[in-house]
Simulated scan of single mutants.
Amino acid sequence: MSSRVVVLTGASSGIGRASALAFAARGDRLVLAARGADDLKKVAEACGNDPLVVPTDITDRGALDALLSKAVERYGRVDVWVDSAAVMAYGKFEDLPPEVFDRMITTDLLGSANVARTALRQFRAQGRGTLISVSSLLAHVTVPYISAYVTAKWGLRGLIRTLQHETRDAPDIHICTLAPGSVDTPIYTSAANYAGFVGRPPPPVDSAELVAGRVVRLADHPRNSASVGVTNRIIELGFTLMPPIYDALVTPLMRHGGLSRQAIEGTDGNVFGSKPREEGGPGRWTRAQVGGALAATVLGAGAAVRRLLPRN
């Protein structure tokens, strides 16, 4: 394996943290960036091999310029840039404070645009490089109670697709997007919330480590887009081909699957600044648990049918 220089924005938790650990395990040299310095230091200690730690807010273009300068000063180049930095807010659009909505768009869309601009400047200068933008299934479908997040991810999808057109003149520059479905990360419990109940990833839920493995594979073998989530394609097909059914089901499913029964007072979460992260949270149903529940349901139904059948 060759040792690459990998910059990760959003490296302090979730998919960014898991990706940092995965790249570190294969011997890559890391530059870790996020708003929270303390969390970054913990990730750096877990990674080993003395990563460069640069606390950075991606909404600040000057801070991103400084991040790039420090990365190039230490390592001389940037081979891969993974951007997974994001914040979230729950609540109906009408209930979200306008400043929370605006800040989310600033972070999740304009911040990611800042990252892409900074990475591309370096890739153009050196003639090669791979940008991996961690997007979401919610860049392909709409869901109630998280309007700002959906709006930002749809916008980011359009930006990344456009950048893929505009870099066709540079065959060694790759722009990739990865769309995870539900992933067990702290973004749900760290979110701003005006919905009355703590958010959670709807089942089935994948681990951040599973998504990180796909991030590393994209770095090894770049492609325009990839998806992680056993139900992603089914949900996309329902959204595209059966909109009346999708529209009838999505709100009750979000109420019961995407919002827990754990009450919460209105809060702006970590939208405006880094705050301590809470790992886990209510109702994380993994693929295996969902599969087991479905299997048990099928077996139970089969047993009930057999009991009703006449016996000779």
Rank of each mutant, 00 (worst) to 15 (best):
Gly62Tyr: 09
Gly62Glu: 14
Ala63Gln: 10
Leu64Arg: 02
Ala66Ser: 12
Leu67Val: 03
Leu68Arg: 11
Leu68Trp: 03
Lys70Thr: 10
Ala71His: 10
Val72Thr: 11
Glu73Trp: 06
Gly76Leu: 07
Arg77Val: 08
Val78Gly: 04
Asp79Thr: 08
Asp79Pro: 08
Trp81Phe: 04
Trp81Asn: 02
Trp81Pro: 02
Val82Leu: 04
Val82Ala: 01
Asp83Phe: 00
Asp83Arg: 00
Ala85Tyr: 03
Ala86Asp: 08
Val87Lys: 07
Met88Tyr: 12
Ala89Thr: 13
Ala89Pro: 01
Tyr90Ile: 12
Tyr90Met: 06
Lys92Asp: 15
Phe93Glu: 11
Phe93Gly: 04
Glu94Arg: 14
Glu94Gly: 05
Glu94Lys: 14
Asp95Glu: 14
Leu96Arg: 01
Pro97Leu: 08
Pro97Thr: 03
Pro98Thr: 14
Pro98Asp: 13
Phe101Leu: 13
Phe101Lys: 01
Met104Leu: 15
Ile105Glu: 09
Ile105Tyr: 12
Ile105Cys: 11
Thr107Asn: 02
Thr107Ala: 05
Leu109Gln: 00
Leu109Glu: 06
Ser112Asp: 14
Ser112Asn: 12
Ser112Arg: 08
Arg117Ser: 15
Arg117Glu: 15
Arg117Tyr: 10
Thr118Ala: 15
Ala119Phe: 07
Leu120Asp: 07
Arg121Lys: 15
Gln122Arg: 14
Phe123Glu: 09
Phe123Ser: 11
Phe123Ile: 13
Gln126Gly: 05
Gly127Trp: 07
Gly127Thr: 06
Gly129Tyr: 07
Ser136Ala: 11
Ser136Val: 06
Leu137Phe: 02
Leu138Ser: 09
Ala139Leu: 03
Ala139Cys: 08
Ala139Gly: 10
His140Asn: 07
His140Glu: 06
His140Cys: 05
His140Leu: 11
Val141Arg: 00
Val141Phe: 03
Thr142Asp: 10
Pro144Ala: 05
Pro144Arg: 04
Pro144Phe: 04
Tyr145Leu: 10
Ala148His: 04
Ala148Trp: 09
Tyr149Trp: 11
Val150Met: 04
Val150Lys: 05
Ala152Glu: 09
Ala152Arg: 00
Ala152Gln: 06
Lys153Val: 02
Trp154Tyr: 14
Arg157Asn: 07
Gly158Glu: 10
Ile160Gly: 00
Arg161Cys: 12
Arg161Gly: 10
Leu163Gln: 04
Gln164Val: 03
Glu166Tyr: 10
Glu166Met: 09
Thr167Asn: 09
Thr167Arg: 06
Arg168Gln: 14
Asp169Asn: 10
Thr177Tyr: 02
Leu178Val: 06
Leu178Ser: 01
Pro180Ile: 05
Pro180Gly: 04
Ser182Ile: 00
